[in-house]
Amino acid sequence: MNLVILAAGKNTRLDTGIPKSLVTLHGETLMSRHIRIFKQQGVKKFCIISGYGAEKLEAALSVLKSTHDADITILHNKRFDLENGFSVFRAKEWVEGNGMDDFFLTMGDHIFDPNFVKEFVRKSEGLETTLQLAVDMPGDSNAHIDIDDVTKVLVDEKDMIQSIGKIIPEYNRYDTGLFRLKSGVFDTFQESFDKEEYTISQSVSKLIASGQAKTVLVEGYTWNDVDNPDDLQSTIKLMDQKRL
């Protein structure tokens, strides 16, 4: 198993002067936590997509390679001004160069309960569709989520995605920011780029149309997107409560 972590964003909303993946919570950076937790679940190789603050991120990763005894490749996205789909595509050479059939994908500013990751890894085995997305059911367990910012998903009775976006009229799941993708997904991203569409959600919409976008429901575990000061405070509170 292998993992791509997107860490190229400009960090305009949290504005700490460093990439969001280097924010330290309870003595550990978000990036270090990702590497530690995913390695525990069997991930062998990591590909980190850098962008904004690349020098600081690369310096931190040189230490983390040793700390976690991890196989880490860093690829720089010089067009980090574009949306996150462009960063995903930057991993194409790494995925294909290592002969991977599939890979996991997440964001450097997300945080997961280790059991959330464990459950998704288990449930996503035997990948049949091009994309599998870990989703959660809206409820009290994720009441801390920023409802205006979270990506929402409408899923049918077969767990297939019907629509996705931050502003959609109907939804029954939250996008948690953790994916399992077949290597052929890069063809879909290229189709999106040809139309100057650079978000992950726009490429997912194309996979929806071809019946290749499925969800995996992972309930009962905490996760968050550390995207702004409010998210940061809610995450610290969750960690204090031993929920992360």
Rank of each mutant, 00 (worst) to 15 (best):
V4M: 05
G9H: 03
R13M: 10
R13Y: 11
I18H: 11
I18R: 14
I18C: 08
L25F: 15
H26N: 15
T29G: 12
M31I: 05
R33P: 00
R33Q: 04
F38A: 08
Q40F: 12
V43N: 04
S50P: 14
Y52G: 08
A60K: 10
L61E: 00
T67L: 13
D69W: 04
T73E: 08
I74L: 01
L75Y: 02
R79V: 03
F86G: 03
E93T: 11
V95K: 11
M100S: 06
M107G: 11
M107R: 08
D113K: 01
P114H: 11
F120K: 03
L127T: 03
T129I: 04
T130Q: 07
V135Y: 02
D136N: 10
D140K: 15
N142G: 10
D146A: 05
V150P: 00
K152D: 01
V155C: 13
Q162Y: 02
K166M: 08
I167E: 12
I168E: 10
N172W: 06
N172M: 06
Y174T: 02
D175M: 08
T176A: 13
S183N: 11
G184N: 15
G184W: 00
E191P: 05
D194Y: 13
Y198F: 15
T199N: 12
S203E: 02
S203T: 06
A209K: 15
A213W: 11
A213P: 07
K214I: 01
K214Y: 00
K214F: 03
V216M: 06
L217P: 00
Y221C: 03
N224S: 13
D227K: 09
N228C: 13
S234I: 05
L238Y: 00
K242M: 07
K242N: 11
